[in-house]
Structures are given as C-alpha cells and as structure tokens.
Design a protein around this nucleic acid. Structure first.
Length: 204
DNA sequence: CCCCTGATTATCT
DNA sequence: GATAATCAGGGGC
C-alpha cells in the first residue's frame, strides 16, 4: 500500500507519482497510465497562464479539485489541481486502463445507444476518451477528490516511468512534462501540434 | 501504417 | 470571427 499522494507539490512533481493510481467514479475505475503537468502562471501552455479568468479560475482553487473543461466543442477533459492553492498547476489525465466498470465504459464511448466495441486498452486512451468513460460533464468542474471521485492506490508493481514533451499544444512544446508508463497499450500516441511555436517564443 | 479533414462550442480577440 | 491540452473516419501507401 503506497502512501497517499501529497497534492500540494507542483504538478511536475505530482504527475509521475499519479501513474499506477486508480481514479474511481462510482462503478468505473481507471488505472492511470499517462498524464501531463501544466504549470499555471509560469506555463504559456496552461489555461491558467493569463490568470484566474473564465474556465481557468478552477485551477486557482485548492489541491484536489477537478478542473473539467470542454475541448474542441466536444471532449470533456479532466485535470487534478495539485499545487498550493493559487499557483494553479494541474495534472491533465491523458489515459488509463479501465479496471472496473468496463460495460458502463463501453456504453459511454458508444453512439446511438449502442455500446462501443473497443478493446479495453483503447477505452480510456486519450484525454477526451478518458473523460467520456468517466461520464464527465461540465457540471463536474470543481468537484473535489474524495467524494464523488476518489483516488485509490493501485497494485504497485514497479513500472518504468517515461518522460517526454506534451502532446497537441502550441506553446512550450518541448517542455518534458508528459509522463507515462512503459509498455502500456492504453497510452495515447504522441502528436506534435501543427501550430507549434518556435523555441524562441517559449522563453517568456 | 500515415496524413488529412470535419465536427462542435466555450472562450477570447 | 478565430481558436483550441481532440477524435474518428477516409484515402493513400
């Protein structure tokens, strides 16, 4: 049994520690296999970079809050706010292995009342898919870990943690803030954004 | 396998 | 009006 994660450190410290832990909501549980750290006011790629305005206000709340936002008009993405309150660093949950509630997860990934027929490894691969499997809604923005959502220690075989650049963003594209477990089929493929800024623009 | 494109809406300019 | 921390599906190799 691993000790509870201390969410009051910066996201880049917390993110690798979250790998292998299980996020549960009701019957559905996910063992986290891929996460990304966002560093709030110090990070040009963070929604919180320009301060506690609009949707980003949630990231300035207390550690253990969930920051849920809508991406590309359709995908609900989940972050765990994990910094000291006010500095707004957070961990984006990018992928997990569904370890409980597979049938519910398939229904949530499905279309027109028909359950999706994805292999388990693909069900929660990618942040939009992970959000779908958890049944996230914008009303879940600001929810606290510990009640509706909870973080449980996974069985903890020591796994190799890999580190690399974050996916899909257009600022600070080469900062090594994406963490994933080696040899996990649920980890999403790396995609460099076609809008990636040049390195000189990342030093602010 | 890879690359390209459309979908869809909160937020920002 | 433009953009975006994405995804699924289509076409090409």
């Amino acid at each position: 049994m691993r000790s509870p994660i201390d969410l009051t450190h910066r996201a880049d410290e917390v993110a690798p520690l979250l790998l292998g832990w299980v996020l549960r909501r009701g019957e559905v549980a996910l063992r986290l296999t891929e996460v990304e750290a966002y560093l709030g006011l110090d990070d040009p790629a963070s929604h919180a970079y320009r301060g506690p305005r609009g949707r980003a206000a949630t990231m300035f709340r207390a550690p253990g809050c969930l920051y849920v936002y809508l991406s590309y008009g359709v995908h609900r993405m989940a972050n765990i706010v994990c910094s000291p309150a006010g500095s707004a660093s957070a961990v984006l949950l990018r992928a997990g292995e569904v370890v409980a509630g597979v049938e519910i997860a398939r229904h949530r990934r499905g279309r027109d009342e028909e359950p999706a027929n994805h292999p388990v490894a693909r069900l929660a691969s990618g942040p939009g898919n992970l959000g779908a499997v958890l049944g996230l809604d914008l009303a879940d923005d600001g929810a606290r870990l510990g009640v509706e959502f909870s973080l449980e220690p996974g069985d903890s075989p020591s796994r190799t943690v890999m580190v690399g650049p974050r996916t899909g963003i257009s600022h600070a594209v080469d900062w090594p803030l994406r963490f994933w477990l080696a040899d996990e089929p649920s980890v999403s493929p790396y995609r460099r954004s076609p809008r990636a800024s040049r390195p000189a623009e990342d030093r602010l």
